[in-house]
Design a protein around this nucleic acid. Sequence first.
RNA 1: GGGGACGUAGUUCAGUUGGUUAGAACGCUGCCCUGUCACGGCAGAGGCCGCGGGUUCGAGUCCCGUCGUCCCCGCCA
Length: 609
Amino acid sequence: MCGALRASDAGKKAVLMGWVNRRRDHGNLLFVDLRDRSGVTQVVFNAERDRTIHEKSAALRNEYVIAVTGTVKLRDANTVNPNMPTGEVELVAEELRILNESKLPPFLPSDTALTNEETRLKYRYIDLRRDVMQFNIELRHKVAKAIRDNLSGQGFFEIETPFMTRSTPEGARDYLVPSRVQPGTFYALPQSPQLFKQILMISGFDKYFQIVRCFRDEDLRADRQPEFTQIDLEMSYPQAERVWEVVEGFLTAAFAAAGSAIKTPFPRMDYDEAIRLYGIDKPDLRLPAFTDVRDCFSAENLQELAINSNLPVVAVRTPRVGELSRKERDDIKPMFHAKGGARVYEDFKRIANKFPDAAAAIAKKTGMEDGDLIVLVAGGAQSGPLAALPEHRKVTPQELAIYSSAGLLRLALAQKYAERHGIFKKSGDAAKDFRFLWVTNFPMFEWDEGEKRWNAAHHPFTSPHEEDMAKLETGVEALNDPLSPLSAVRALAYDVVLNGTELGSGSIRIHRQDVQSKIFRALGMTEEEARARFGFFLEALEYGTPPHGGIALGLDRIVMILAGAESLREVIPFPKTARAVDLMVDAPTPVGEAQLRELGIAVKKSNAP
RNA sequence: GGGGACGUAGUUCAGUUGGUUAGAACGCUGCCCUGUCACGGCAGAGGCCGCGGGUUCGAGUCCCGUCGUCCCCGCCA
């Protein structure tokens, strides 16, 4: 292999095959860097030593595929290249075969400047030759293998589930596959193997896992692709803590495979606490949490600032941004997307001028240091008096509006000034670079303001807390009430979060048919609707279902973070663009009339006025 | 569905207030070069300024539309 030769190989005969990475022509002396996935070795064609082969080498161009036979030679001390692993040796060419020529590529794998992504994706086969991509794909392989080995070692069976399955609308949109044998009917590609893995528990395979492709027809993001890979697992009889142990086990193995020693167990945090401290259910622990500074102001202060004194006043601290220019301060306001009645007070200096006592108290309470930026988010006075809220509701909708708009601003500011505070830079210390967290006790239901009903926050097979069953009973009687006791039902659901990215989501499932029915009812589904959608599953539940639970983690996201990449596309060999297009194969495409006819499908012309 | 950024040579980019023949670097082609490793030197080729329309004596530059890529919000049970 091109990356394998070392000083100890000197004098040996060797055959190297690979691509011409670079060519340096010195007249009668020609150097070629020969590349394969293992690395690069310098090959020397010397006219003095062998005129014929030197003449032949003149035809070599970038990305030609060649085979070179020669002798491994120790380089002279002054020609050693300490920057490459094979830099102590070179291959003196004795025989050259050009295995294939290459057209002039649109960009070279050896280019230092990165080509625009559109071109990279169109010529993905060339892009993948770049050493970074080779590294990422190899990393992906190692991580997946470590996880497989670890879960097998923990007694899990890898079991496949169907890709062509049943559409169960609700949640993400399905990708549909038309049936030719039964025209007018469709399979759906799985959004996750959720029901199949639960049925595997009912079937007695008490520890299941699968590294499996999932499909969701939703809009894309840097960390969301329409097809993505999950590490899906399920086990019988576990407490949530047991599932977390399993996950911490395989993540430790995966990160070890990537050269990082992470510490377990991961810290845990209630959903409500996450919202209060970070304004988001997937906090990035590398950045400082919020501080509630309402009590730093006097009642008169708050009135003067037109701040609602019943709601929290959140201080967002961004460390070490230094002195901000006037323009930079002005730029903060547009970064703030107010939810509800939330307002931003971005000019801390002005507050300090007007209310020196309050500012001093805030600086002290937030631990503000020189160069730190403090921005306040609070409820406007006009956001009105507090509605009479049921006391079981821990974070009220008005509070949530403040917390979550502050949470978004906190991340946007951290992103914008990443260069200055340097918190996102890898330090090499795994404990600092990888901040894992379990977020637990999610609410079971979320109020859908548009539809005026309750949705499952996780999925409808998630078990509620045993203690909250009573609230479920009474809540079912108040289905269309946003203040229904349903709001206080906690789910036995948990997310694993890394550096502000949701890696995975899981829960203890419902194993009793009567509880499952109640949940469907709470979601506004009639018995008939539930039967029509999930009948097969409800029936299966009635045949001796063991308690069970599990989780699914995004493999792509794990590898992305390990690779230090900004986008999933950097760790997926053949990804899609933001409009879900594969630029290399040019998919999706229209299909022929004949093919459609056979499927009993007619395409409606959509460019009607 | 909404907001924002971008689109100039094969590639990465520059292009001033709207003004002569649209530039640079890398890559490419040819010639020279025996110790380079992001080799060097000389010469050369290479442009539908994304596409369509408009304003103007004159548009890469201003306006409108459109297509494409990226980022964010909504969405992602």
